[in-house]
Amino acid sequence: MFIATGSIELVHPDSSGSGGFSLANTPLYGGGMTSVHFTRSGYDYAVFARVGRAPGNGQASDPVFEDGVTVSRDGQHLSTRICDDGGAGLQQDIRWLPRRGGN
């Protein structure tokens, strides 16, 4: 169930101030993905912006831009929500975030 439009559904960090953000860059076929990760109440969130090309029939394909959020728990993928912004990407400067596990 989602909260009504205009309401804040998730605030991070929570009132305890626990958790932190990390940044990951992942190469993809014909592009790449940048994602910001954090954990809250046992759930792992990744906010991502990606661009890639779908291979097919030896023909060049147009790039696909997509932004969204994935949610997982205990390594199990639970949900992916795609933004309806047309793949505008992450608009803020996020280079200050610590790098996630070796990238």
Results as ranks from 00 to 15, higher is better:
residue 90 L to W: 12
residue 61 S to L: 03
residue 68 G to L: 03
residue 23 L to F: 02
residue 30 G to N: 11
residue 68 G to C: 06
residue 46 A to R: 01
residue 29 Y to F: 08
residue 80 T to M: 05
residue 46 A to H: 09
residue 89 G to H: 07
residue 35 S to W: 06
residue 98 P to Q: 12
residue 77 H to G: 10
residue 16 S to N: 10
residue 31 G to I: 03
residue 43 Y to M: 02
residue 16 S to Q: 07
residue 75 G to H: 11
residue 18 S to G: 15
residue 50 R to G: 04
residue 67 D to P: 02
residue 102 G to F: 05
residue 98 P to G: 14
residue 11 V to I: 04
residue 14 D to Q: 09
residue 80 T to K: 02
residue 26 T to K: 05
residue 35 S to I: 03
residue 14 D to K: 02
residue 1 M to I: 08
residue 93 D to P: 00
residue 80 T to V: 00
residue 24 A to M: 05
residue 1 M to G: 15
residue 69 V to D: 09
residue 40 R to Y: 11
residue 41 S to K: 07
residue 25 N to Q: 11
residue 43 Y to D: 08
residue 85 D to L: 00
residue 69 V to H: 01
residue 61 S to N: 13
residue 23 L to S: 06
residue 54 A to Q: 13
residue 68 G to H: 05
residue 75 G to E: 09
residue 3 I to E: 13
residue 31 G to R: 02
residue 86 G to P: 01
residue 9 E to Y: 04
residue 35 S to D: 15
residue 60 A to T: 12
residue 28 L to F: 14
residue 101 G to N: 13
residue 86 G to M: 07
residue 37 H to T: 10
residue 1 M to N: 13
residue 36 V to D: 08
residue 98 P to Y: 09
residue 93 D to R: 06
residue 46 A to W: 00
residue 55 P to W: 10
residue 64 V to S: 08
residue 51 V to E: 15
